[in-house]
Amino acid sequence: MRFARAFVALGVVLLAAALVLVTMRLTTAGDTLAARATMPAGWLLIRPPYEVSALVIEGETVWAGGSDGLQPIDGATGRLLPLPEGAPHMRYVRGLLLDTAGNLWVAHASGVTVREPAGWRTLTEADGLPPPRYLSLLQDRDGAVWVGAETGAARLVDGRWRIYTTADGLARPSVDVIFQDRDGVLWFGASHPTEGGLTRHDGRTWQAIDAESVLPHASVNDIMQDAQGAIWVSTGYARRGGAARLFEGAWTSLTREDGLAGERVRSIFQDPLGRLWFASEYDGAAIRKEESWLLITPRQGLAGWEVKDSAIDSRGVLWLGTENGVSRVSELP
């Protein structure tokens, strides 16, 4: 009898463990399939990866980078791909760049890793970079690669890194965002909550923008240029901020009172239909449709509440990296 009771107890334990495993499968790799049943037409939720700060398209592959490292995704199906052989382990990926030579650059907590024809290599302070962490990447139209770090920016020239700091003209030490506009002007944004700022560099002179007078908030999270040529700056921290627009020399702002989803604007991008998306930190994204706004949140199919980066592939498919997965959008709302 005692043996029978022990056997039953063991069975109960094994059954409970099996239920836990099934539940884990449904809420991790399986939650992608489960969510597909409730997705709007043309929307696909990809999870894992979870937190995604950066996206870049390489042919049929979408590279996603975030807290857990680097993840390649099949652009046609949304299925996860294995990492290439020899790829090092990376954490807290903040920036991705595919340069004109086809090299993949990855900015992460401990270095900048480059995939080249010869393999993978990681650059650090010992190679001439500023101290970590590494936050952003850009290849300018002269072909030079820029790296943004918590302590400045570095430009690769003739195989050597040239470091720029506040002593050279940066408004703030941290370089979370680097952007080059159509006139060739470089913009550097710092998103630190108390030491945020915006810098303009035309190749000769550095100009620290008076953030207090022209931006809704000094913390700069993203910079982009729309089809009309206007420069947009995403700003904010916690429950303060908005979007700033520079057009024909004049600055204007949008806030939640104007129709944005939330106070802090995390990123701004333009979809294949030409509409601007303003992504907040906590409240989803607001799409500007002429004089009206359309709000998109996880309730409407978005993977997470905060769109941190976006990319458009050769099919016109929109990829959105969030704090809780990736959305693949082939039919725009």
Rank of each mutant, 00 (worst) to 15 (best):
G169F: 05
G152I: 11
H108T: 00
E195G: 02
A34N: 11
P130Q: 10
L44K: 02
W187H: 05
L170G: 11
R2S: 13
L246M: 11
G119A: 09
A118Y: 08
D168I: 14
D313M: 03
E150N: 11
N103R: 14
L246I: 14
Q207Y: 11
G30P: 01
P272Q: 05
P82H: 13
G203D: 04
L137A: 06
A6K: 07
G316R: 12
G259F: 15
T165Q: 06
S253T: 15
G196S: 09
E58P: 00
V8Y: 04
E195K: 08
S234C: 13
L318V: 05
F3S: 15
V56I: 08
M24I: 15
V147G: 00
H108D: 05
T199S: 07
V317Y: 00
S292N: 15
A101N: 11
L273P: 04
V185A: 08
R245K: 13
L26E: 08
Y92D: 11
T23P: 02
V326G: 00
S280D: 14
D99G: 09
P173E: 06
L276I: 07
W161E: 08
R172A: 12
I209T: 06
G42T: 05
P193M: 13
P193H: 09
S314P: 00
D158V: 14
L295I: 08
V185D: 06
Q228C: 07
R182I: 06
F247A: 13
G11N: 03
D222F: 06
G241A: 12
S267Q: 04
A101I: 09
Q300P: 01
G229H: 09
T151M: 07
W232Q: 04
A208G: 04
G242K: 00
P72I: 05
L44Q: 09
R91V: 05
Q300C: 02
W120I: 13
L138F: 01
P173I: 14
G30C: 05
D181Y: 11
I223H: 05
P40M: 10
T28Q: 09
V307R: 01
G301P: 03
G69C: 04
S174K: 12
A87F: 07
L135T: 10
R115C: 05
A9H: 02
E290S: 12
N103I: 06
T32I: 03
L135D: 09
A144Y: 12
G59M: 03
V93S: 03
M24P: 00
A87M: 15
R200H: 12
E150H: 10
A250G: 03
P84M: 04
I46G: 01
I178S: 03
G86E: 08
G241Q: 04
L14Q: 08
L332C: 10
L15E: 14
T297Y: 02
T194D: 10
R240W: 12
L83E: 00
L80S: 02
P117L: 01
G69I: 06
S330G: 12
W206T: 13
A190E: 01
P333G: 07
R204Y: 11
A227W: 05
Y50I: 08
L137R: 06
W277D: 00
T151E: 06
P131Y: 06
V317M: 02
A18T: 11
T194Q: 14
W63K: 00
D127F: 07
F269C: 03
D313F: 01
